[in-house]
Design a protein around this nucleic acid. Structure first.
Lengths: 338, 338
DNA sequence: TTGAAAGCGCTAACAC
DNA sequence: GTGTTAGCGCTTTCAA
C-alpha cells in the first residue's frame, strides 16, 4: 500500500540518496525535483516518520505528563502548546496520571521507552522521583506550573509568580479597607497552594493584620470544593468581608454559593477570583480577577522545549516565571472607614 | 547511553534472537532468563519502541483528533480512553483542530505520516473528507459523538442516543404538565444539535403541541452562550415554564442566569440539564439531568479500537449507540392543572 | 549534484 | 531453545 523512497527511486530512476536529500532540504537539480514531485503524487508517497526516527534518533515526539486531563486550566495550556509543537512537526503524547505519583512514574517510563525527545510535566510527585530517569537519560524536561526543588538546575520550568499574584490580590483587598479576608486554596501541600498562601500571609503581615486560620479554607481546586469552602467561610457570624479564591473552578463554585445564599457581591462581600477560560466565557464580567495567561504559558513551554531540543547541551536549564494578569472588575467594594 | 539488544546479547553470551524472544513472550531457558534479567538491570536496557515499530509495522500509537481540547466533555472521554489504551501499551497522540476542518485534515495527515495504528475522531467536518486518506490507507477509524453519513460502513462509531435522550427529557417535562418548553441547543448544523432538536420535536408532535421557534435558542455549547440563551428565553412575557438545556457548560451558564435574575427553580421554571463532570462536582445536586456516560464512551472507544486492531479485517465496522442516563432531581415541578 | 552501501535496533524466518 | 541472517524505510558518509 504505502510506497517508500525506494519506490520513488525506482520510479524516477534516481538514487535513494537523492530522494532523501530532496526531502531534507538538499539541493536537487530542477529536472529531478519535478521528477520526484510527480512520482510522489502518483505513488502517494509520504515519508515514514518511524523509519526516520530510528535513523536520526529523534522521535519528534514530546511527552506530556499531567495530573488530570479533565482540568480546564491544564488543557488550555496543552492546547496552545500542542498547536505550536505540531506546527514544527512534533507530536505530543499526553499521559494523564490522575494525580497519582506511581502512575506518573510509569507514564514517564512509558514515554522514555518510546524515545520521546522531551518531556513536559506538571508534576504530581513533589520529590521529582518520576523524572529522575529522564534526567539521567539526558532527555530535556520542562516543569509546568509547579517547581521541584530537588531538580533545580537539571530541568527547566515555566511557572507563574504565585506569591506575587496572591500578594497583589490581598493588597488590593486591604487597600479597600478589608482586614478580614477569606482565602480559598487548593489542596494543602501543593506547590501553588503553598505559594498563594505565602503571598496572602506576606501581605497580611506587612499590613499588620494577624491572620486568622478560620479565614483559610481548602477547596480542593474543584467547583464543589469552592462552593463548600465559601459556604463555610460565610456561615460564620464574624465572617470575612472579602474573599480571594485561588482557581477557576473554585471561583465558579464560590460565586454560586454566594448567589444561592443571597449574599451580594460586592455589597455584602468583596471577591477576587482566579483565571479566565475561554469555554466558560465571561459569565462573571464584573468579577475582579487574577488570571494566569494560559496561552503564554503554553507558548513558553513550546518554545523553551524547541530551544532545548535544538541544542540540548548548549542551552542551560532555566526557570521562566510569568507574571499573572489583573483584571479590575466591580466585585471589590471599598469599606474604608472615614 | 541507551543499550540495545545487541549489547544484551554480548553481555549474556546469548544470541540476538533469544533476547528478542525473551521480550516477546517466547520460551527461554530458566538459566538464560536470569542471565538476561540481570543484564537488563545492569545495562538499564529498555526496548526501543521505534525500532520495534519499524520492524513490526505497528506504531502502537493511536491518533486522536478533536475539535477542542478545552472542553470538559471531550477530555473526560479522552482521559479514560487514554488510560485504557496506555495499559495495553498504546500511546495516544492528541491533536486539537480548533473546530477547523482544514486543521482537522492536516491533523489526520500528520498522524498518518506517523503511521498511527488507528484514528479516533470527534469530527468537525461533517463531510468526512479529512478521514478519507485514513480509510484509504486502511487505518481503522472510530468516530465519537458525531456520525458521518458518507462514511457509513467504512468506519466505526461510538455515539449516544441523542434523539432518545431529548425525547426523554421533553417527555418528562410534558408529563409534568409543561407545554411551553424552552430548548437550548449547541450550534445549528452540528450532529448532536440536530439529533437533540429532533427528539424535542418528535415528542412535542406526539403530544400534539405545536413547536414555537421562539422557544428554541442556540447557546454555542458554551457557558456564556447558555447564560445568554436562557436569559433571552426567560425575558419574554410568555416565557417557557420549563427548560431543557443540552450540554454541561450551557447548563451551568443557564442556571447562573436564572439565579441572577432571581428566577427560582423549580418554583418559577422547571429545568432539565445535561451532563455531569467530575471536576465540577455536584454543584446543582437538585438538578434533573440527562447525562452521557463519558467513562463508558471512552471505554467503548478503547475496546473497539483494540478489537479493530487485533483483526482489522475480520471485525466489521459497527456503530455503538449508548443510552444516556437520567438523574431525577427536584428541578422539575408538576404544573398539571386539576 | 548524485549513487552505492552501511547501518539505526529490532523481529522473524530458518536452520541447528 | 537457540543462533544466524536478512531486512523494515530511512539518513548519511564517501566516491564518483
Amino acid at each position: 500500500m504505502t510506497s517508500t523512497m525506494k519506490d520513488l527511486a525506482q520510479a524516477t530512476g534516481l538514487g535513494l540518496a537523492t530522494i532523501s536529500k530532496y526531502f531534507n532540504g538538499g539541493t536537487v537539480r530542477e529536472k529531478n525535483r519535478l521528477l520526484i514531485e510527480d512520482a510522489v503524487k502518483r505513488l502517494h508517497f509520504a515519508p515514514n516518520e518511524v523509519a526516520r526516527s530510528l535513523k536520526t534518533r529523534q522521535s519528534h515526539v514530546i511527552g506530556v505528563v499531567i495530573p488530570e486531563l479533565s482540568n480546564a486550566f491544564i488543557t488550555s495550556i496543552i492546547s496552545t502548546m500542542e498547536d505550536l509543537l505540531r506546527q514544527r512537526n512534533y507530536a505530543v503524547i499526553v499521559c494523564d496520571c490522575r494525580s497519582d505519583a506511581r502512575q506518573e512514574k510509569q507514564a514517564v517510563e512509558f514515554l522514555l521507552h518510546r524515545r520521546v525527545d522531551g518531556l513536559i510535566n506538571m508534576p504530581t510527585d513533589p520529590s521529582g522521583a518520576p523524572l529522575r530517569p529522564a534526567v539521567e537519560a539526558d532527555v530535556p524536561v520542562i516543569l509546568v506550573d509547579r517547581l521541584i526543588p530537588s531538580l533545580e538546575g537539571q530541568v527547566s520550568a515555566v511557572v507563574i509568580d504565585n506569591v506575587r499574584a496572591a500578594e497583589k490580590a490581598t493588597e488590593t483587598l486591604i487597600a479597600s479597607g478589608h482586614r478580614r479576608i477569606g482565602l480559598v486554596l487548593g489542596d494543602p501541600g501543593l506547590y501553588t497552594t503553598d505559594c498563594r498562601m505565602q503571598g496572602y500571609l506576606n501581605t497580611l503581615k506587612a499590613a499588620g493584620i494577624a491572620p486568622d486560620p478560620r479565614d483559610i479554607s481548602y477547596g480542593n481546586y474543584t467547583m464543589n470544593g469552592g462552593y463548600q469552602a465559601v459556604q463555610g467561610l460565610m456561615a460564620r457570624k464574624d465572617r470575612p468581608t472579602a474573599l480571594f479564591i485561588t482557581n477557576f473552578e473554585m471561583t465558579l463554585g464560590g460565586m454560586l454559593a454566594l448567589q444561592r445564599s443571597g449574599i451580594r457581591v460586592p455589597e455584602d462581600v468583596s471577591v477576587i477570583g482566579f483565571d479566565k477560560l475561554d469555554t466558560f466565557g465571561d459569565v462573571f464580567p464584573h468579577l475582579t480577577l487574577i488570571h494566569q495567561p494560559q496561552n503564554i504559558i503554553g507558548r513558553e513551554c513550546a518554545s523553551l522545549m524547541l530551544d532545548l531540543l535544538s541544542d540540548s547541551h548548549a542551552v542551560p536549564h532555566r526557570v521562566v516565571t510569568l507574571a499573572t494578569q489583573f483584571t479590575k472588575g466591580t466585585s471589590v467594594r471599598s469599606i474604608k472607614g472615614d
